[in-house]
Computed example of a mutant assay.
Amino acid sequence: MTDEMKKNGPDTAAEAAAETDASKEQDAAGAAEAETRAPDPIEQLQAENLDLRDRMLRLAAEMENLRRRTERDVKDARSYSVAGFARDMLAVSDNLRRALDAVPAEVLESADAGLKALVEGVDMTERSMLSALERHGVKKIECEGEKFDPNFHQAMFEVPNPNVPNNTVIQVVQAGYTIGERVLRPAMVGVAKGGPKPETVTVEPGTEAVNEKDA
């Protein structure tokens, strides 16, 4: 015990010893906390591996989406690159058909060989043109007698006809065509108005379905 401690008495010496112990405990606690905060190299590597794996999966998904989009764009380019040209050729086909329809059947029957050959040549030209377009994916929309569909048809007028269901295509003014899965040109049609309504079926609890027409 130092002279200073002897002079100050036993209480002061005890306090000094307590402070020394407290300081040692704080140093030990600080060291333990430092060890706790220090990252584990293995855990750090595992976290980095997970992060890299996540990035790799995201990159692979993006590349797959890009590949699919590229394939779709290439397919569309092949299928629809001739759309503008095909539409112009359809206008030529329409004019050929108008020329054929302008010749009455009775006139054609009594016509000379030259006129008949001319009409046959125009008809063959039209059919050959449509056949060539079909080889490139252009197909005619068959719609007469079908229910009106605004996705494929363009209604030009209505015709009162009680003998066919309402909104049935009964006349084609101008043929429509598709190219691939798209509409190249909608069909211009006339539709029936005022025909019979579609038959409905009524069902009551505990009974079988009954057709209203037969009820």
Score class of each variant (00 low, 15 high):
Ala31Tyr: 12
Leu57Ala: 15
Ala113Lys: 14
Glu19Gln: 14
Glu109Val: 12
Glu212Ser: 08
Glu19Lys: 15
Cys143Arg: 11
Ala86Pro: 05
Glu134Ser: 13
Glu144Val: 14
Ile141Ser: 04
Lys116Phe: 11
Leu130His: 02
Val173Trp: 10
Pro39Gln: 04
Pro150Asn: 07
Ala155Ser: 08
Val189Asn: 03
Leu130Lys: 02
Leu66Lys: 06
Ile42Tyr: 08
Glu19Ala: 14
Ser128Phe: 08
Ile170Trp: 03
Arg97Leu: 14
Thr12Ser: 12
Glu62Lys: 13
Gly194Leu: 04
Ala28Lys: 07
Asn161Ser: 07
Met63Phe: 04
Ala61Met: 13
Glu181Phe: 00
Ala215Leu: 08
Val82Thr: 09
Arg87Phe: 09
Pro41Trp: 03
Arg135Ala: 00
Asp76Leu: 00
Asn49Ala: 13
Gly121Ser: 15
Asp149Gly: 01
Leu59Val: 05
Gly30Glu: 09
Asp54Phe: 01
Asn65Glu: 15
Glu212Gly: 01
Arg37Gln: 09
Arg98Gly: 10
Asp51Cys: 02
Asp51Ser: 11
Leu45Gly: 08
Glu43Trp: 06
Gly9Ala: 08
Cys143Gly: 12
Glu71Ser: 07
Thr36Cys: 00
Val189Phe: 06
Met124Arg: 13
Pro10Arg: 07
Glu25Tyr: 06
Val92Ala: 13
Ala47His: 07
His136Ile: 07
Ala99Asn: 02
Val169Glu: 01
Val191Gly: 02
Ala32Pro: 01
Ser81Glu: 06
Glu212Asn: 10
Ala38Arg: 14
Leu96Met: 14
Leu108Ser: 05
Met5Val: 11
Val82Gly: 00
Thr202Gln: 13
Lys139Ser: 02
Ala86Glu: 04
Met129Cys: 06
Val210His: 10
Val74Ile: 14
Asn8Asp: 11
Thr202Arg: 12
Leu108Thr: 05
Thr178Cys: 06
Asn65His: 12
Thr12Trp: 12
Ser131Met: 11
Thr36Ala: 14
Leu108Lys: 06
Ser79Tyr: 04
Ile141His: 04
